[in-house]
């Protein structure tokens, strides 16, 4: 199998504060990888470094074998690296449709954009119903669907999804995870960050546990469920 994304000895932080320490990671094409860990220990920062929003202090990131360290965030998107950010980073004063059109910013031609929009509406019929609605008036769950749908519009090769269940009601989380399960057919490789491993275990091929900016464990979802000490120590559950 070929590497979709490869991270080698990555160190990063904000100003003088180092958040990530010597992170190495190799995700093969088609895999769904989960990163779990306590809040504020570097999971989201890792995604930001991979997508180019936060610069790395040292180390290298390869995509399909090509180093992408020197690329800005928008250039990485053009290479097929998509990040669905944490929270509601939708365009609040734009309609649902305009938000999706922004997702298709790099797509060529109106026909192609329409095809992608219709595909998203098929996946999220609720968004089709809300097509002309201003994004800030949507519910939390609908905004999350819009965020994922907008990311899908890019049709990238790798999707980095940051805490898709954060702040949502259990029913909505079920719906979001049904969609993530379907995403395997759309985006070959997924890297999903979550604080709680329960839902992630159902869709991930491999899970990494991050603590204080380092990977302290990795294994399959089955191995994780058998390791109750690990969960109790790091996740308090």
């Amino acid at each position: 199998m070929t590497s979709a994304i490869q991270v080698s000895n990555l160190t990063a932080g904000y100003g003088r504060r180092q958040v990530l320490h010597n992170i190495s990671l190799d995700i093969e094409e088609g895999m769904v990888v989960g990163i779990i860990g306590p809040n504020g220990h570097g999971k989201s920062s890792l995604l930001k470094v991979l997508s180019g929003l936060v610069p790395a202090t040292s180390g290298q990131v390869f995509m399909g074998g090509v180093a992408i360290d020197g690329m800005s965030a928008h250039q990485r998107v053009a290479k097929g690296l998509v990040q669905i950010p944490q929270g509601d980073l939708v365009f609040p004063d734009m309609t649902v449709e305009e938000n999706l059109l922004m997702g298709g910013y790099l797509a060529q031609g109106r026909t192609e954009i329409d095809r992608r929009v219709n595909k998203v509406y098929e996946m999220f019929p609720r968004l089709a119903e809300r097509r002309p609605q201003i994004a800030r008036t949507l519910s939390g769950g609908e905004r999350r669907m819009l965020g994922i749908g907008r990311g899908l519009m890019i049709e990238g090769q790798i999707m980095l999804i940051d805490e898709p269940s954060l702040g949502l009601a259990p029913k909505v989380i079920d719906m979001v995870y049904e969609v993530l399960a379907k995403l395997r057919s759309v985006s070959p490789t997924l890297l999903v960050v979550e604080e709680n491993p329960v839902r992630l275990q159902a869709i991930a091929d491999r899970i990494y546990l991050m603590d204080n900016g380092e990977f302290v464990w990795n294994g399959t979802p089955d191995e994780l469920s058998r390791n109750s000490d690990l969960i109790a120590t790091y996740l308090g559950a």
């Binding site: 180019g52 965030a73 998107v77 980073l89 939708v90 609040p92 004063d93 734009m94 990311g151 890019i154």
Partner: peptide
């Protein structure tokens, strides 16, 4: 308009 509302998300759209 998108950039004026959400710069980070705009970057992530390419």
């Amino acid at each position: 308009r998108a950039v004026s509302q959400q710069q980070v998300a705009s970057q992530l759209m390419g």
